[in-house]
Design a binder for these strands. Sequence first.
DNA 1: GGTTACAGTGAACGACTGTACACTGAATAG
DNA 2: CTATTCAGTGTACAGTCGTTCACTGTAACC
Lengths: 217, 217
Amino acid sequence: MSNAVDIRTLMDVSEEPVSRQERKQRTRQALLDTALELLADRPFATLSLREVAKGAGIVPTAFYRHFASMEDLGVALVEEATRTLRGMIRSARTDPDTYQGMISASVATLHQFVRAHEDHFRFLARERYAGGGLAQAIGAELRMFSGDLAIDLARFPKLREWSTEDLHMLADLIVSVMLTTIVELLEARPGEDAKITGTAEKRLRLILLGVPHWKSA
Amino acid sequence: MSNAVDIRTLMDVSEEPVSRQERKQRTRQALLDTALELLADRPFATLSLREVAKGAGIVPTAFYRHFASMEDLGVALVEEATRTLRGMIRSARTDPDTYQGMISASVATLHQFVRAHEDHFRFLARERYAGGGLAQAIGAELRMFSGDLAIDLARFPKLREWSTEDLHMLADLIVSVMLTTIVELLEARPGEDAKITGTAEKRLRLILLGVPHWKSA
DNA sequence: GGTTACAGTGAACGACTGTACACTGAATAG
DNA sequence: CTATTCAGTGTACAGTCGTTCACTGTAACC
């Protein structure tokens, strides 16, 4: 009978015949997803090529068709996670008029993105201080983020005459509050989110409260 | 000849015949020191019992005379490192009169301790976000530190009428600045110390500048 | 001075690691 | 329709891992 159920329907919702490179990319993504899953409770350096391959449903040697080494996969993971991070930053950059509006909007965006991509943020937070090549890559990304923030901050009236050095100091301070908040959200027990975001807003408000009275050393 | 040089003198400066438990303690310390050394550029979870034993000059099986497992050694390492941390906090608690005095004195103490015990602070910073039991133990220690700081802060005139919640918010903020500074010092290239401590002082000054104008909620 | 406690030894184990190599079979190219 | 490309397979090997066990030599004890 021509209308017999295709066995592929049980495995794969999509109907179109997948091309070869598409299959390859799916396996690659399966490797990345498996790694991210295993990274939920241990550092990247403890992952083995074999268990990642097994999790993705391929034999160990096939791993090399996608990455030259585990470190290579780590780099790809950093790229994927920082893409999420940049997405968050883009979302948060909604030119606000007031400090207060900027603060609560930014914290809300942060909260939303962390909850939607916990594994990415957990990975970044974990590996940021783990040492090694990944930590450096993540550090460079955060420094870029801080630099962009400093430029954004320079647009505010009260900050217009600040030295670039002081602007970077302020931007780094804000980034460190954001980072602390991310870690708190990832460690939170259910129901604590509101308290954490509330505290984050307070911290940022306190910092910006000092801005009008600042005199550089 | 009775004044012949004892071979032990070449290995060990002390003259007295070392007792058995003293020898044991030295081996134990050698294990801890070796682990700390290896931890300079990798996470704790990647250390193997065998290489730590080898570094301490004993055979792998002898490791068990001192620790039941590597995780046990990790706990001992957390205790050793947090002892250093508490020493720093004790040194910094020199009842100052002014904010400014407190800030520069605290940052100076921080700088001095980090440089004198880089491996302890590197270990704490690395494992703080690494996940697992050690991270929890370190987190608990930091929370205790933050709590003590909140109590200290309550003694300042301007902070006397703050709610305990807001005091904790402020203490956490200060701790996070301290942590950021520690990591910056550990990642610094030679000669950057003054710039980093200077920035740290600025960040604290900015935060405390907002204190007099704070209104909760 | 004889006995005990015990830090450290050395061989052996089964499990796991990364990687080399020859292969298979199906999608793709000509 | 035939030839090629290449993601994935299966076997194999040399290391390393944590842990077991029976052992040795000496400091400490009675």
